[in-house]
Simulated assay, not measured.
Amino acid sequence: MTRVAAIDCGTNTIRLLVADLVPGQGGPTLAPLARENEIVRLGQDVDRTGRLDDAALARTLAVVEDYAARVRELAADRVRFVATSATRDAENRAVFIDGVRERLGIEPEVVSGDEEARLSFTGALSGAGADPGVARLVVDLGGGSTELVLGTAAPEAAVSMDTGSVRVTERYLADGVTPATEAAARAHVRALLDLAGRSVPVERADELVGLAGTITTVTAHALGLREFDAEAIDGARLSIEDTLASCEAVLHSTASERESWGYLRPGRRDVIAAGALVWSEVVTRAVERTAEAGAALTTTTTSLHDILDGIALSLADRS
């Protein structure tokens, strides 16, 4: 049996998955041994400066060093490190790449938005109960980018939008949510969705699946959870009305309310309003487009299987 280690380094969070690849008739599945994540905010101010901040680099590379030790401890046979939006956008990304190589002993990959989307779709499809015959619109809402992927058994159309919880916070909501800043942020997301619709026929979606921290937080809020509960969140189906109501409540929540939510980690509290805004716009657009096509999206589905699982599964094809 092959043991793999996948690391996903995004704008806000860096995560590790170590798992055994289990052969199966429909392809390999994952038997996880360890899942770890840390909020490091690698993308701090990248949208404004075009560079990775020195302090953010130090925070992230310290976690990479810890992950490298964990990978060695668990004796992974194959390792893949994927960096996404913040690293793609940074002119000094070579410093980060060199630092990862030095600590992990492999070449990190700064993947394109299209590859990020493909990996997210593969990961989402690996979740228990996923029906490969359904036209699924998978949304991976990150800190710096948001991927929309449409497909059934495999991706058929994909686009990466330069928007996410950190980027929208820094551009529009850093000083709080007001009617004016909210309107500006929504206009930004809607314009990007207009462009995305040229590449991804959202109206063909039978199911809307959301991935990553913003969407799991909105789901936990809608479910009335006190703490993060993976079993309750993974595969949870919410009505469109409940999803949008939760987005609205999170967007306009107070600091004390966010502090009271046991499922919301401190490093995400300052950007969760922006993330909820982006998710609400994506959901609204998907509902509008499918309705125009004579269909109806009535629910959203949340998956804890995402790009990290996709990275791990991609190692099945690597010798």
Rank of each mutant, 00 (worst) to 15 (best):
E65P: 11
G176Q: 04
G164Y: 06
V149R: 04
Y172T: 01
D114A: 15
D89H: 04
I39S: 09
V168M: 02
V100Q: 05
S160V: 07
A62N: 11
N92P: 13
A62C: 11
A69E: 15
S126M: 10
M161Q: 04
V166W: 07
V166N: 03
V168N: 00
S85M: 05
T122K: 12
T178M: 13
G151I: 09
T163C: 15
I39K: 07
R80D: 09
G99M: 09
T87V: 14
G143P: 03
A83K: 04
F121S: 03
I39P: 05
E107Y: 05
R101P: 07
A75G: 08
A154F: 11
F121I: 02
L57H: 11
P179M: 03
S112Q: 04
S145F: 02
G176W: 11
V71Y: 08
L148C: 06
L173K: 02
S112M: 12
L74F: 05
G43C: 10
A62W: 08
V46S: 01
V149K: 08
A130L: 09
T146W: 04
I106S: 00
A174M: 11
E91I: 07
F96D: 00
V139Q: 02
A124T: 08
A83T: 03
R88T: 04
D114W: 06
R118P: 09
D53G: 13
R167Y: 09
L125C: 14
V111W: 01
E107H: 10
A58E: 09
D89L: 04
T60A: 14
A75C: 11
R101N: 02
L150W: 09
R41D: 08
